[in-house]
Nucleic acid binder design. Structure first.
Length: 439
RNA sequence: GUGGGUAUAGCUUAGCUGGUUAAAGCGCCAGUUUGUGGCACUGGAGACCGUCGGUUCGAAUCCGUCUACCCACCCCA
């Protein structure tokens, strides 16, 4: 095709035929979050680049090579958000929301941007549903957040998701662990794959996540973070596990869950599906106790998660999860002739004011074509409006599913005096007919 | 950024080792039926065979380039 207008690499359209699926997922997530006491927050798509460098961490891959960064006309360095937490935290700090009752509980549905090579479950523009619970140091908050993530996935009908949790400790105990890990791997450096040799310098914890069998063998006897947690972090993690046990939510402790964003501390977790390819993490999150302070705010231990909406949708389609049917139009009016067409438009408008989805011909098509159209778009009922109907004030309402037809009598003057208050009777008439016909 | 696969109508595809008007199904439009969709039949529109270049008398078909898509690494949701 010779179209100039093609979507940018790594972006995707949501077409009308699929929009209801997105609406369903977004609403299910928002409703669940609301039941946990979260309210929506909306922040800008772009922020100062510095915000992400500070929060996500300037040594991370996200910041180093994946951000959409540009200078605006005023010379400011601007970045399209690569994730949702930084903006939400910035907003809470900027507006002093932490002066209200803590914790601040907010959720968001947003688009995010990362310059990566697209593949299954990974786009350059993607969408996240996320929650942030700001100012909540207790492990109860960790458990609740995980429970919320689970509730959303469950309500969407998603099955076979594994919950993996870990604790990466506070900066103090993590530093000790990193040293131990580094010296362990340094002794076995020759056995590691090439990428892991790099990781040894940049982020030794990532080696634990390597898929190469060689590295996995080396990792087998590597020191485990959980053995290096300080008393507080250890107790915190134990309580989180106990709370999950009590709630009956099963999980596996996986020391390999190491998040790639610098702000994470203590509890980290992922909900993982094995059914949508290599990018199986459908929801990921954890605690970020140091973030508020890092951004110049007060000490506000916080946590949250983000769900990848495209991935959620993929899993759901893969598992044939039920989506509610999109609402079809109630009535298609097929006018024949100019007079009827004018009346059809008026009838439609009044029906719309009554809350019906009513449409009519816009293309001057013949009756047959109109009926075909009505059938194709899934209209529940159709109504032919021609000279006979206009004269006799009687039309036949047709149930498109059963083919059954029933007469609808228009009270005097309705067709010609559409603004007359008698019109109400017409709609009562139509309304009743629609109700009787339904089912 | 690295590697592998793919690229023919709106969609799904056929087109064998190069040979002249590029094919089918679905979909779309119209007619058979100036008053009722789904079925059937008939007809129609719709493709410079992803791009640029090369080999050849001749390229959708062979070679190279670029681009896009898919998959994996990496990274993450």
């Amino acid at each position: 095709m010779d179209l100039q207008a093609v979507a940018v690499k790594g972006t995707q359209d949501v077409l009308p035929a699929n929009a209801h699926k997105w609406q369903y997922i977004e609403k299910t997530a928002a409703d669940a979050a609301a039941r946990f006491g979260f309210r929506e927050i909306r922040t800008p798509v772009f922020e100062k680049t510095e915000l992400f460098e500070r929060s996500v961490g300037d040594t991370t891959d996200v910041v180093q090579k994946e951000m959409y960064t540009f200078n605006d006309k005023g010379g400011r360095s601007i970045t399209l958000r690569p994730e949702g937490t930084a903006g939400a935290m910035r907003s809470v700090l900027e507006h002093g929301l932490f002066n209200d009752a803590l914790p601040v509980k907010a959720f968001y549905t947003t688009s995010c941007y990362r310059y990566e090579k697209p593949q299954a479950g990974r786009l350059r523009e993607f969408h996240q549903f996320g929650v942030e619970c700001i100012g909540a140091p207790s492990p109860v908050a960790d458990a609740e957040i995980i429970l919320l993530g689970n509730a959303i996935l469950t309500e969407l009908g998603i099955k076979d998701i594994s919950l993996q949790i870990n604790s990466i400790g506070c900066p103090t105990c993590r530093a000790a662990y990193k040293n131990a890990l580094k010296s362990y791997f340094e002794d076995r450096k020759d056995e590691l794959c090439d990428t892991c040799k790099d990781r040894l310098e940049r982020n030794p914890m990532r080696i634990l996540d390597c898929k190469s069998p060689v590295c996995q063998a080396v990792c087998k006897d590597a020191p485990v973070i959980l053995d290096y947690l300080c008393d507080e972090c250890s107790a915190h993690f134990e309580t989180v596990k106990t709370l999950l046990d009590t709630a009956g939510l099963s999980y596996t402790v996986n020391p390999g869950i190491v998040r790639g964003l610098d702000y994470y501390t203590k509890t980290v977790f992922e909900f993982i599906s094995s059914q949508i390819g290599a990018q199986g993490t459908v929801c990921g999150g954890g605690r970020y106790d140091g973030l508020a302070k890092e951004l110049g705010g007060p000490d506000l231990p916080s946590l949250g998660f983000a769900m990848g909406l495209e991935r959620i949708l993929m899993v759901m389609e893969n598992q044939n999860c039920p989506f509610p049917d999109p609402e079809p139009v109630d009535l298609y009016i097929a006018p024949m002739g100019d007079a009827a067409q004018a009346q059809a438009v008026l009838l439609c408008n009044t029906l719309r004011q009554e809350g019906f989805k009513a449409i009519t011909d816009l293309n001057n098509r013949g009756l047959k074509a109109q009926m075909k159209y009505a059938g194709k778009i899934g209209a529940k009922f159709s109504l032919v409006l021609g000279d006979n109907e206009l004269n006799e004030k009687i039309a036949r309402l047709k149930n498109m599913k059963t083919g059954e037809q029933r007469e609808v009598v228009f009270p005097d003057g309705v067709i010609t005096a559409i603004y007359d208050e008698n019109i109400q009777n017409t709609f009562q008439n139509l309304n009743e007919s629609l109700e009787k016909f339904n089912g």
